[in-house]
Amino acid sequence: MAKITQEQKDYQQLVKNVKPKPPYLKNIVMAFLVGGLICLIGQLILNFYISLGLDSTKEAPSATSATLVFLGAFLTGLGVYDKIGKRAGAGSIVPITGFANSIVAPAMEFKSEGYVFGVAAKMFVVAGPVLVYGIASSALIGLIYYVVKF
């Protein structure tokens, strides 16, 4: 990386002062409302599966995840999820429906490059890092747990 000069620093300071800021409060309120709503729907689905007799610690949460993933994927296919995301920001990115969106969006987008190099290869361009860091950190924590315990 090239060295940053004083002139560049001064200019970036000027830019920082004049450039319009995102509507912070509105964004946070929308993220809270939409994120909360998605979790509330998740709770409805969870209670529904528990009422069907699924085990409340493992089976019902798994079924809930799969259902929410389906909803996120379907709304992405219909072209609705990005419209929600435009207003909700993190409110629709952070829930598991957003994880589904991040998988379906590139899969659809790169269909024009074929089903192997396009759909399949690009499916995890956005969601891949979440799996990598999630799985790697869980394995690391598992290792620490194992060493401490045994």
Binding site: V69, A73, L78, G79, A100, V104, M108, M123, A127
Partner: peptide, 23 residues
Amino acid sequence: ATAAGITAAIVFGYIMALIFNPK
């Protein structure tokens, strides 16, 4: 523990990509 969510994402993701086009 997370198989349901991940597999659902891959399967549904593939199906949606088959059916729908980006708008």
